[in-house]
């Protein structure tokens, strides 16, 4: 790590360092900047122990059979083989997780972008108010459980009551006990809570686009707001687009809690069972640590992989 940095630094200022080797230079810089290490140490030690180590520990344990009581036993790829060949529920989980991610990720991203863009030209007070309306659901804790009352399975649930009142149905629909409805409803609820950090980042990004660019664009023949968005606004806020994508993707893989709260654990016929649930089941309840580490590793790789992929794609915006 430090060597890489040193190489880059050397390219930046080649003159000062001709008289010593890379290692000597690095050592000198390290001594000169030792305050930096002291300042970052408290954070980094905790970060290392609680974030870096667990990722690698999971990867190692995923090749073992381990129940927390006996010493882990190396089993090679057995856990992965079992996951993909013997565990039908896991395949359902992967499928549902991907459906969740592919729908909620892009939709919440685009929703954040367009709402932020719509409200960009409102007067500041008005904009702050509208921001609050759209952002509040993402920080409102367990408020999404109101959907449990909306779609309650008896006639006192608002939706059933309306449908019965206007004679669309005679018997109340069991919304969260019917495999047909659970996934779509959970996706709607997840979208309701999804205008979070990405949204705020876009609002801020739109505010700092240089006005002279718009004026110059108008002179160069930008005709309407859509052209302006594509040719001027988006390229100027590319870094926010990137950050927002990371936030949205990470969020779109993490919606397990909403399903558990609304549809139960497990949801009926495992119809909305995600990798998060599988992980909780094997890790938090059955304590099959090796097996759940394999699940965690797959989830980790899926998240990192899709983030990298989207970063690649987004670097093409406006080019």
């Amino acid at each position: 790590m430090s060597q890489n940095t040193a190489v880059k630094e050397r390219k930046a200022k080649p003159v000062a360092r001709k008289d010593m080797t890379r290692a000597q230079w690095t050592w000198k810089e390290m001594k000169k900047n030792k305050a930096g290490y002291i300042m970052i140490a408290p954070f980094f030690i905790l970060f290392f122990v609680f974030t870096v180590v667990p990722v690698f520990l999971s990867m190692i344990l995923s090749f073992t059979s381990f129940n927390l009581l006996e010493w882990p036993k190396f089993v090679g790829l057995d856990n992965y083989v079992r996951l993909f060949l013997d565990d039908d529920i896991f395949l359902t989980a992967i499928q549902n997780t991907l459906i969740f991610a592919v729908i909620t990720g892009p939709v919440s991203y685009l929703l954040s972008l367009f709402v932020a863009w719509f409200i960009n030209e409102l007067p500041p007070k008005m904009r702050a108010f509208v921001t609050l309306i759209f952002y509040a659901p993402s920080i409102a804790g367990s408020m999404y459980q109101i959907f449990g009352i909306f779609f309650s399975s008896d006639r006192y649930g608002y939706v059933n009551a309306l449908l019965i009142e206007y004679n669309f149905i005679t018997e109340p629909i069991q919304f969260f006990q019917n495999a047909k409805y659970v996934m779509p409803l959970c996706i709607i609820v997840a979208l309701w809570t999804s205008l979070g950090t990405t949204f705020l980042s876009f609002i801020a990004g739109l505010q700092i686009v240089d006005n002279s660019l718009y004026e110059a664009g108008a002179l160069d023949g930008v005709r309407n707001r859509w052209q302006e968005l594509w040719y001027i606004t988006l390229p100027s806020m590319k870094e926010q687009l990137m950050f927002g994508a990371v936030m949205s993707i990470t969020g779109s893989f993490g919606f397990g809690g909403i399903v558990t709260a609304l549809a139960g654990f497990p949801s009926v016929d495992y119809c909305a069972w995600t990798i998060m649930h599988h992980l909780e089941d094997y890790g938090g309840q059955r304590f099959e640590v090796g097996y759940s580490s394999a699940i965690a590793t797959i989830l980790f790789l899926m998240m990192i992989g899709s983030n990298m992929l989207i970063k690649k794609l987004l670097s093409k915006v406006g080019q």
Partner: peptide, 16 residues
């Protein structure tokens, strides 16, 4: 670390 949710590290952290 912004690219994955902390659930991924939950089991390993339990061991820690």
């Amino acid at each position: 670390s912004l690219m994955f949710v902390s659930t991924v590290t939950g089991i390993a952290n339990f061991i820690t």
